[in-house]
Amino acid sequence: MITIKNLHASIDGKEILKGLNLEVPAGQVHAIMGPNGAGKSTLASVLAGREDYEVTEGSVDFDGVDLLELSTEDRAREGMFLAFQYPVEIPGVSNVNFLRTALNEIREYRGQEAISAKDFMAMVREKSAIVELDPKLASRAVNEGFSGGEKKRNEIFQMAMLDPKLAILDETDSGLDIDALRIVASGVNKLRSEKNATIVITHYQRLLDYIIPDVVHVLYNGRIVKSGPKELALELEEKGYDWIKAEQEEK
């Protein structure tokens, strides 16, 4: 689904990603873990096309398309979705109005007809149930006055509506209590299929009890330095990141 080769990216002249390699095939969930400042959120931002970051080297192939050549909106239209670590509050823009605009622009890009108002509302009802999001929230202004848990559920609701090929969950678990975490994780699990892929970026192993990854990667100092099965997450939880740092310094 996505193949990242030797990716270098910097912000304000400071290099954050220093030759990152990652491959996530369709049908799989990959977790990316790592200490603070390793470059986890930078990776998510670069893939989503945030302009503050400059890609200086490397390539990203997204299902046969050169991702780095695309604008942010075209990445979304090609099937990329980023669940934000800090979802943005947008006063005055209703969730449904925004999602209908998004959905129709994506459909237009793909040469499909606009969705009818009736089908759209049916879809809103069906998808909001996946994350147990109160349908009333769907008609409220985007994230405005939402609790932390509601904001994260709203991210997954949007993901369900847009049905992406690749979803990147950036610290979606941060700040969630166990109940909210279960709801968000079960939403993500319901959306998993053989055709899509998910990258879960997290600081904590906890989330991975609910979203079982196929592969766990450790991101440190701008590179993937270790990859392994889901048990690697447990090991990291138990031992912290110091041994990874020590291992890297030895090299």
């Binding site: 302009e51 942010t72 909106e73 979304a76 947008i90 006063p91 823009v93 605009t101 959905l103 622009e105």
Partner: peptide, 23 residues
């Protein structure tokens, strides 16, 4: 940040700005 958020959902920059101005 709101413009970027809307773009990341597949909305063109122009539509994103229009949505925000209208709101």
């Amino acid at each position: 940040e709101a413009v970027f958020y809307l773009q990341s959902r597949g909305i063109s920059e122009r539509s994103a700005r229009n949505l925000l101005v209208e709101a």
